[in-house]
């Protein structure tokens, strides 16, 4: 709540647009990496296809903006509708993936998610109604009450969504669902014997994860104002939302949060000072070094440090 109020005050008094753009990307990755972590971290199913869910959310929201034009008449109602729709469609895709890959584990699951991303790009490229390879233009509402600029409003909404994503992940982690998911991660057959509803939990995790990704995607069209399949359903999105939780630590909600904030900021700095290509290189190098040196991520390092202080 305090965070949200703080963010609101910032939008009222601070108007350098670049920082809002940069912050949007960081917030977007907080949502994406929390979403990724529900399936990848808690349940142990590594997903390379975040781009597909993100893209489906983005395209759903862009189509709604274009067809219904609610932005002008009800500017505050539009975004929630977009989020719900984007989340729902992505959840449906998640449900489909969940059922199709029900019996696939480990690396085979990961490959099928990678395939899903490519299939999604191809489908969008070949549907003219979705803009095909030419892409879609989305026009941001020019004015919004209480804010000097639409971007500032979008930033505030993203803050709220990020808070929600973190709270949601935290709730799952500490509930019976989270316990069940960690059993699935550790030994699926043993979980089955113990009476944990493995299948239900897996489908739930896939859907919860893809919903968050879809919601993050739904905010994207208004951010970029131009949607094009190859950069939207990109592997960059998939790799980033996998690297952030891994670097932060996958066992708790704090991991993806720390990872997304840290990497997101480093990436934005690299983007401005170096070049867009280098910003992805930074992620790659960090990911490799963390996997080798600190497989439990920053949160794991922090815990070790605290444990050694106690001794």
């Amino acid at each position: 709540m305090l965070l949200f109020l703080g963010a609101f005050l910032i939008t009222q008094n601070f108007h350098n647009q670049y920082y809002y753009l940069a912050a949007f990307t960081v917030l977007q990755y907080i949502i994406l990496s929390q979403g990724w972590n529900i399936l990848g971290g808690y349940t142990g199913y590594v997903n390379f296809g975040t781009g597909a869910f993100f893209g489906v959310g983005a395209y759903t929201s862009a189509m709604i903006v274009k067809t219904f034009k609610i932005g002008k008449s009800a500017p505050f109602l539009e975004l929630p509708i977009l989020f719900i729709a984007g989340g729902l469609v992505a959840a449906l895709l998640g449900l489909g993936l969940g059922y199709l890959t029900m019996r696939i584990k480990g690396i085979y699951f990961s490959i099928s998610t990678l395939a899903l991303a490519f299939v999604t790009v191809t489908i969008i490229l070949n549907i003219d109604a979705l803009g095909g390879a030419t892409g879609l233009y989305i026009i941001r509402p020019r004015k919004i009450p209480f804010f000097t600029n639409y971007m500032e409003f979008l930033f505030l909404v993203m803050v709220a969504l990020s808070i929600f994503a973190v709270a949601f992940a935290r709730y799952i982690e500490n509930s019976w669902i989270g316990r069940g998911l960690s059993a699935v991660r550790d030994d699926e057959d043993a979980a089955e014997c113990t009476g944990v509803p493995v299948l239900k939990l897996k489908v739930f995790a896939t859907m919860a994860s893809s919903t968050l990704m879809g919601v993050a995607g739904a905010a994207y069209p208004y951010f970029v104002t131009f949607l094009e399949p190859i950069s939207t359903v990109s592997l960059d999105v998939g790799v980033n939302s996998l690297a952030m939780p891994l670097i932060g630590g996958t066992s708790t909600w704090a991991g993806p949060l720390v990872g997304a904030v840290l990497l997101g900021i480093i990436q934005q700095i690299a983007l401005v000072t170096l070049s867009p290509e280098y910003s992805l290189l930074v992620i790659g190098i960090l990911l490799v070094s963390f996997v080798i040196l600190a497989p439990e991520g920053i949160v794991g390092l922090f815990r070790k440090f605290r444990a050694s202080l106690k001794k």
Partner: peptide
């Protein structure tokens, strides 16, 4: 309820977490 052959615990979880999972 069964106690499976070869125990089939959750090796990466703590004793307490294993017990909680029994009570799912």
């Amino acid at each position: 309820t069964m106690v499976p052959e070869g125990r089939r615990l959750f090796p990466q979880l703590t004793v307490e977490e294993n017990l909680y999972l029994g009570a799912f």
